[in-house]
Simulated scan of single mutants.
Amino acid sequence: MKPSKTLVALGLAGALLSTPALAQREGVSVGQNSVFTGLVSADQIEATALQQYRQVLREAAQQNALAPANNAQLQRLRAIATRIIPHAIDWNPRAKDWKWEVNLIGSKQVNAWCMPGGKIAFYTGILNQLKLSDDEVAAVMGHEIAHALREHARERAGKSAATNLGANVFSELLGLGTLGRTVVGGGVQLIGLSFSRENETDADLVGLELSARAGYDPRAAVTLWQKMNAAAQGAPPQWLSTHPSGSTRITGIERNLPKVMPLYERARGGG
Rank of each mutant, 00 (worst) to 15 (best):
V28H: 03
S41P: 00
R58F: 11
E46F: 11
N33L: 13
V28Q: 01
G38L: 08
Q51F: 13
L39M: 14
E46P: 01
A49R: 04
V56P: 00
L39S: 02
D43P: 00
Q52K: 12
Q32I: 12
S34L: 10
Y53N: 01
V28M: 06
E26C: 01
V30G: 01
R54I: 08
T37S: 03
V30S: 02
S34E: 04
L50I: 10
V56F: 14
Q52F: 15
D43G: 05
V56G: 01
E26M: 07
A49W: 14
Q55A: 15
L50Q: 08
V28G: 00
R58V: 09
G27Q: 04
Q51D: 07
V35A: 14
R58Y: 08
Q32E: 07
T37M: 09
V30K: 02
R58E: 10
R54L: 10
G27S: 06
S34T: 02
G38A: 08
A47R: 06
V56I: 08
A47E: 08
L50R: 07
A42R: 14
Y53L: 05
T37Y: 06
A42G: 05
L50C: 03
V35D: 13
N33Q: 13
Q55M: 11
T37F: 06
E46M: 12
I45E: 03
E26K: 06
V35H: 11
E46W: 13
G27P: 00
L57V: 01
Q55D: 15
G38H: 15
E26S: 10
L50W: 08
Y53F: 08
S34Y: 06
Q44C: 10
R54E: 09
V56L: 06
V30R: 04
E46Q: 15
Q52M: 07
G38K: 12
V56Y: 10
Q52H: 08
I45Q: 03
Q32C: 05
E46N: 07
L57A: 01
G31V: 15
R58K: 14
R54S: 12
A47P: 01
Q55G: 05
S41T: 04
V56Q: 12
F36T: 10
V56S: 11
L50K: 09
V35F: 12
V40C: 04
Q32N: 10
V35C: 03
S29V: 08
Q32R: 10
F36I: 06
V28F: 05
L39V: 14
L57R: 02
Q32T: 09
V56E: 15
